[in-house]
């Protein structure tokens, strides 16, 4: 909307002052950043994992993309139309790091950011996080639609290994 002119005072040129302030600020930010980059920037060696589903799940194999969709809750059901129940390990678990990079194709921090967006915009909540391989295996054995991953090569009772094509 156009407004009638109001009396005003044009301030003195501030370009130089703004540039100086910005340059100082950026130097401070970069300096702080440089101080904080340290050895843990180097990624840690990947762990191995296997994907487990409930023994009653008729599926023997699935694609990486389909499995990623289930863990990111873009897909809610298996091909058998059974509701999918993904379960994660804790975000500091090396097995989760390996699974995240191998199947979801993104680091755990990026997955956390994905879930933060979805949680607070009301779209969905992340899979439950369990403490150990044993807890994941128990959960998968108890829920027909469950899917999880563990470091162990053993196949606990009530579960079976899902091959990733």
């Amino acid at each position: 909307m156009q407004r009638p002119s109001l009396p005003h005072v044009i301030p003195p040129p501030t370009r130089r002052r703004a540039r100086r302030a910005l340059a100082l600020g950026l130097c401070a930010l970069l300096g702080l950043g440089a101080l904080t980059v340290s050895a843990d920037a180097v990624s840690q060696s990947p762990a191995s994992y296997q994907v487990l589903v409930n023994a009653k799940n008729p599926l023997m194999a699935t694609s990486r993309e389909a499995l990623a969709d289930i863990f990111l809750k873009r897909s809610s059901r298996w091909e058998s139309s059974e509701r999918a129940l993904p379960v994660d390990l804790r975000s500091d678990s090396p097995v989760r790091r390996a699974f995240s990079l191998g199947v979801l194709k993104r680091p755990v921090a990026a997955v956390r950011s994905y879930w933060t967006q979805r949680i607070f915009s009301g779209r969905d909540i992340p899979p439950p996080e369990l403490e150990s391989d044993e807890a994941v295996a128990r959960f998968v054995a108890e829920h027909p639609g469950a899917v999880g991953y563990t470091s162990s090569r053993a196949i606990p009772a009530g579960t079976k290994r899902l091959e990733i094509r």
Binding site: R3, S5, L6, H8, V9, I10, P11, T14, R15, A18, R19, A21, L22, G25
Partner: peptide, 27 residues
């Protein structure tokens, strides 16, 4: 931030000054 221009500034927050009267370069 290094800002150039005043189009997103609110006159009401700037003492009623029109946008063309506000500092062009600012941080």
């Amino acid at each position: 931030h290094y800002m150039n221009g005043t189009a997103a500034l609110d006159s009401a927050l700037n003492g009623g000054q029109q946008q063309k009267a506000l500092a062009k370069d600012w941080a």
